[in-house]
Design a protein around this nucleic acid. Sequence first.
DNA 1: GGATTGGGTCAGTGACGTTGACACATTTTT
DNA 2: AAAAATGTGTCAACGTCACTGACCCAATCC
Lengths: 199, 199
Amino acid sequence: MPDTVDGPPTTAPVGAGRNLLFLREEELRLAQDLLFFGYRDFTAGADQILAELDLGRAHHRVLHFVGRRPGITVGDLLGILGITKQSLGRVLTPLIEQGYVLQSPGRNDRRQRLLSLTPKGEALERQLFERQREWVMRAYREAGPVAVEGFRRVMRGLMGAEARGQLERLEQRPRPVAGRPHAASFPGGPAATDWPGTG
Amino acid sequence: MPDTVDGPPTTAPVGAGRNLLFLREEELRLAQDLLFFGYRDFTAGADQILAELDLGRAHHRVLHFVGRRPGITVGDLLGILGITKQSLGRVLTPLIEQGYVLQSPGRNDRRQRLLSLTPKGEALERQLFERQREWVMRAYREAGPVAVEGFRRVMRGLMGAEARGQLERLEQRPRPVAGRPHAASFPGGPAATDWPGTG
DNA sequence: GGATTGGGTCAGTGACGTTGACACATTTTT
DNA sequence: AAAAATGTGTCAACGTCACTGACCCAATCC
């Protein structure tokens, strides 16, 4: 069982260079494994719920980021997800048709479709959230606060510059408190009611 | 300030329990974001290399785990990857045909196809590994040794029981040290030469 | 009034996963 | 020796999620 930590070998005080190299190799192999298994099992719980509703992980991501930033524009959402308009359309359109997501025209720029969750959408998002929450909280509890902080730092480091910027923006505008589940007031809020039709 | 339904309060730095709950909510939202962005960008570098060879992430996973445990059986690999035989076949067969992976009959049980990397396969796997290594090392350096340890603890916690067992087994049998890149000796090693044909 | 921008959509493609059913060789059990 | 179980491969059909290219409409900008 290899001792963890970072740099220098904890046990074998042998040949410096070779051993260091070896440790770094195994260290990184371990990181690959951890990310593969960890991410897979992290998403497994939510996937299960989604499957019953004939939705997929892509739908979840939309619910998550729209819930995190109600009133987001389609363009901004595309930027966050890093996918194409067509790919988003395939998951967003059904979500709108099935009443999970609401579109409203922007007040300043009426070309925009501002997205927010309906009560139904919020309910589902919360259900998915709670499922993952249990899972993550277990891991957090087992690992302890210091480890959690370290986890965050490393994960942030694994993100590219672009993603870091997006995450910062997400953190600046935290999700508004629940209570008025409908399209409430968000920056440059909706003109009046819903969208008048798909056009 | 609108009343909340089931959601946590937004401002109130007050009452312990309530505030703690709020922190936990944002804490977990952050974890979701970190995992999404982090995992995506972690895999991006290798994906780029693979795309040029008309291979995908699934091929990489096979190269990774076969490289990690040369002489692994098809069945064990299926267990680790958590996919079906058919899905594995679609990526494994091309890897064999294109000379990245070698099949050899098991010595004890000649039904088994023991998998190992050819020199070509090792070269590609190493190239992919190095790409991710740079990325992860950067994150590790930025975060520091304590954070790395925490990262590992949390990721381990995010894994299900099954995955933990598999990881343990992987760690027990570390990849044989480089130097003899070919199919060397692995437990219950190959009968003699390669597989006599697909039949 | 023309160009640009935000958004939607049609059509085709590819990667990666699924289930079900069947084939074949080898090993184990009876 | 016959029967059953195991390890692996394969055909066929399907679903999700991504991609590209092309084109349309409405609104805004210049």
